[in-house]
Amino acid sequence: MIQYFSIVLMLVGIYGLLSQRNVIKLIAALNIFEIGLNLFIVSIGFVKDGLVPILTSNNESSAMLYVDPLPHALVLTSIVIGVGVTALALALAKKMHDKYGTYDMDEMGGK
C-alpha cells in the first residue's frame, strides 16, 4: 500500500513540474517527487515481520529476520543529495527574485 502511495507521490511531483511555472512551486514539486522516490526505495527493503536492522539487547542475534538495511543507506544518501540540490535551487530562486522581482518564470521573459 505504502509503495502505491509513494509512486502516486512521485507522479504528483511530476505533474507539478509539468504544470507549474512558479519557481517556488517547482522546487516544492521537485521535493515531493524526491520524497516519493525515497519512500519507494525504503519500501523495497521491507521484509514482512522483519525487525529494525539494529542489534540491541532485545534482538541480539544476527540470525533473526531483519529488514533489508541497504535501501535505508541508499535513502540516507539520496535525502542528503536532495537537501543539497534544494538549497542550491532556493539560492537560485532568491537570486532570480532579486533580478526580476518575481517568482514566475513566464514573467521573467526570454532574457
Binding site: 540540490v85 542550491l88 537560485l92 537570486k95 532570480m96 526580476y100 521573467m108 532574457k111
Partner: peptide, 8 residues
C-alpha cells in the same frame, strides 16, 4: 540564472 534553474 533562469537557465541554470531550468537545468537544475
Amino acid at each position: 540564472i533562469k537557465y541554470t534553474f531550468n537545468y537544475l
